[in-house]
């Protein structure tokens, strides 16, 4: 059957590459999506066909490896779980689907663009920041290369150019911040995705849509929008037909991670009161104990004001 079908298309002269030849031309430029509060992306893993076109689109848009589309057509690698690295901001992994073995579940992963990111809270120079529209963006010129962001990220997203001796950068999905804010386009992956499994829009509207989809198709989706509450909410949201833990997602609580450290930091730095209090307390003790009951041994001077 397969052969005859291919043959059919070949007779028509359809069997050749180049169908994705113009990735930089937008077929989905959505003007209202360019700016505004809290943009997001809804990933419907039931629509994802695991074609890796998003990987190519991302690679092309960010000039990562510059490989041709054909380099992203090997689908056999999908079965070994992959992670992002300094030259790939997004990867697709494939997970078995017991409900229909012929239709494995493909999951695209990238930076989740948390609403309250641990990485931006961790970065000591503000090289990682949440942009106006919710994208978590990186400015290399500020960065020290301490890699604390990598320690902090609960999703293990930021990667690092270890091989780069002079100007290593932290690398991760940018949510196509430049394209979205300055070129009025939507993120490259969403633009290319053939089945439009990625929906770009206001996060609040996407959440509404996600819950509507679940309500309309309770057999198709589990009743959980990943990213709605995880670690305080993420800009990227996922719908899935099976439990997310089966699809390589981590079980994460609803608490934003910066709330574990920032209250402590703020308490310490609040007008410098705690350190100054400690300072004053120690000064007072120094004064109170000035006639220490333990005079120096074979010593000819005493007290802090002693001079030579």
């Amino acid at each position: 059957m397969k052969v005859s079908r291919r043959g059919f298309f070949q007779v028509l002269g359809l069997g050749a590459a180049g169908a994705v030849a113009s990735p930089d031309r937008s077929d989905a430029s959505s003007p209202s999506a360019s700016l505004g509060e809290g943009m997001g992306m809804l990933v419907d893993t039931t629509e994802c066909i695991g074609c890796r076109k998003c990987e190519y689109a991302c690679d092309h848009a960010h000039e990562l490896t510059g490989q041709p589309p054909s380099a992203f057509e090997d689908l056999s690698i999908l079965d070994t779980p992959r992670r992002m690295d300094e030259d790939s901001f997004t990867v697709v992994n494939r997970y078995p689907n017991p409900d229909n073995p012929e239709k494995p579940i493909s999951v695209k992963i990238q930076c989740m663009h948390c609403l309250r990111p641990a990485c931006t809270s961790a970065c000591l120079v503000g090289a990682l920041q949440v942009a106006e529209n919710g994208a978590v963006v990186y400015e290399a010129w500020k960065c020290l290369g301490c890699r604390y962001c990598m320690v902090a990220c609960p999703f293990g997203v930021p990667t690092y150019e270890y091989h780069e001796p002079f100007t290593p950068q932290v690398r991760k999905c940018t949510f196509c911040h430049e394209r979205v804010t300055h070129e009025g386009k939507i993120p490259a992956c969403a633009e290319m995705c053939p089945p439009m499994a990625l929906t770009f829009g206001q996060r609040s509207e996407l959440l509404e849509l996600a819950h509507k989809k679940i309500a309309d198709n309770p057999e198709r989706y589990i009743n959980h929008v990943y990213g709605e509450h995880e670690v305080g909410g993420t800009s990227w949201l996922y719908l899935a037909p099976r439990e997310f833990e089966e699809l390589g997602f981590l079980k994460l609580g609803p608490g934003a991670l910066p709330s574990l450290t920032e209250p402590i930091q703020h308490a310490i730095f609040k007008f410098g009161i705690p350190p100054l209090t400690l300072y004053g307390l120690l000064g007072a003790m120094m004064w109170a104990y000035r006639n220490g009951d333990d005079p120096p041994v074979s010593h000819d001077m005493e007290g802090e004001t002693n001079d030579a």
Partner: peptide, 28 residues
């Protein structure tokens, strides 16, 4: 030696880049 961009080591000292939420900022 461990920092990737050791030449930016002075950045935490520049008030324009202070990031008081960071634990590492306080440590540094």
């Amino acid at each position: 030696v461990d920092l990737g961009r050791y030449y930016n080591m002075h950045h935490p000292l520049l008030p324009s880049m202070w990031q008081g939420n960071s634990v590492l900022f306080e440590v540094g």
